[in-house]
C-alpha cells in the first residue's frame, strides 16, 4: 500500500478519465461509459492499494489485477501508462494495427496485463486461479477483479464464486461495477440481477455495499478488507454511474461503445478539467 491521499486519488481518477476519453476519441472506437464508471476503483487499486512494481511487471509476488469486463481497458491502459509500465505515448495507439493496446486487454502484448480478457464472464475464474496459487505457494499476493453488473449475468461468474468460497480465498477482491447499464438497455430491463452484493454474500463472500464513485468510501473499504483474513473472499458492490464525469455520457446507454466527436470531446475535456481539485 502506498500513502496517497483521497484528494490526490480523486485527481488521479480524473486524469485517467481524461486519458481514457482521449484514447477513445483518437481511436474513434472503444467503450467510454464503463471506462468512466470503473475509473475510481482502478485509480485506488493501481495508485494506492496494490503491491506492484511498474519496472518489473512480471514480479512473482505482485498483486494481480483482472479486468473481467475487458472492454473498458482504456481506463486500465491509462493507469498502466501513467505508472510507466510502457511509454505514455503508446496511449495514442489504442486499437491501431500493431499496437500493444488491443481493443481488449492482451497480456502477451501489453506489460502489466495479468491475463487477457474480453469475452465476458471469464475473468473472475482466472483471478480465482491466481488467488489459489498464492494460497498454494504460501504467498501474500492478492487478486483484484473488476466485474460488470451486466457481465454478472454470465454463469461462469457464479461457478468461480463457488470455487473462491470453497478454497477460502480471502485474498480475492471482487469489485462489482454496478452501473445498471448494458448494451441493450438497463440491466433491470435486459436481465434483472437481483442484488449482486447480497448474491455474492450468499456465495460465501464478505460483502460491502458502497458508492463506487466515492473515493473516500473505496479507500475506507479497501482498508477494512486488507485487515480481514477470515477465509472469506471479498466483494465490493459499488454503485456507479456509467459515463461518470462527463455530463452527457452519464447514465446514457448510448455511450456504451461509441466514441465522442470533436465537439463532444472538447466538452468532455472541459468538464473533466473543472473537476480537478
Amino acid at each position: 500500500m502506498k500513502n496517497v491521499s483521497v484528494n490526490e486519488l480523486k485527481n488521479i481518477a480524473t486524469d485517467l478519465r481524461k486519458k481514457a476519453v482521449t484514447m477513445i476519441y483518437e481511436a474513434q472506437s472503444g467503450h467510454p461509459g464503463g471506462s468512466l464508471s470503473a475509473a475510481d476503483f482502478v485509480a485506488a487499486c493501481y495508485f494506492r492499494e496494490m503491491n506492484i512494481d511498474p519496472k518489473n511487471p512480471k514480479w512473482e509476488d505482485r498483486d494481480r489485477f483482472v479486468l473481467s469486463k475487458g472492454h473498458v481497458c482504456p481506463i486500465q491502459y491509462a493507469a498502466l501508462g501513467t505508472l510507466g509500465y510502457f511509454p505514455e505515448k503508446e496511449l495514442h495507439t489504442l486499437r491501431k494495427e500493431g499496437s500493444i493496446l488491443q481493443g481488449h486487454p492482451d497480456m502477451k502484448k501489453c506489460p502489466g496485463i495479468d491475463i487477457s480478457t474480453g469475452s465476458l464472464g471469464q475473468g473472475l475464474a482466472c483471478a480465482v486461479g491466481m488467488a489459489l496459487c498464492a494460497k498454494m505457494d504460501g504467498k501474500d499476493y492478492r487478486a483484484f477483479v473488476v466485474v460488470g453488473d451486466g457481465e454478472a449475468q454470465e454463469g461462469e461468474i457464479w461457478e468461480a464464486a463457488q470455487t473462491a468460497n470453497k478454497y477460502h480465498l480471502d485474498n480475492l477482491i471482487v469489485f462489482v461495477d454496478d452501473n445498471n447499464l448494458q448494451l441493450d438497455g438497463t440491466c433491470d430491463e435486459v436481465m434483472p440481477n437481483i442484488h449482486l452484493g447480497k448474491k455474492f454474500e450468499a456465495f460465501g463472500f464478505e460483502s460491502y455495499e458502497i458508492d463506487g464513485n466515492d473515493m473516500q468510501q473505496i479507500v475506507d473499504t479497501l482498508d477494512r478488507i486488507r485487515e480481514s483474513k477470515n477465509g472469506k473472499p471479498k466483494c465490493i458492490f459499488g454503485h456507479t454511474v456509467k459515463g461518470k464525469g462527463v455530463s452527457y455520457m452519464e447514465n446514457a446507454c448510448g455511450w456504451h461503445g461509441v466514441a465522442p466527436n470533436d465537439e463532444e470531446y472538447a466538452q468532455a475535456m472541459k468538464e473533466l478539467d473543472a473537476q480537478m481539485i
Binding site: 491475463i115 461457478e159 463457488q162 470455487t163
Partner: peptide, 28 residues
Amino acid sequence: PKQHINVGIAEQNGAGVAAGMATCGKIP
C-alpha cells in the same frame, strides 16, 4: 492432495481457473 483442485461440475470455471494458475507458474 496439495496439487489438486476440484471445482465441481463447472467446466468453464475449471478452464478459467487453470488459466489463472498458469499465469502464476503452475502447469495445470
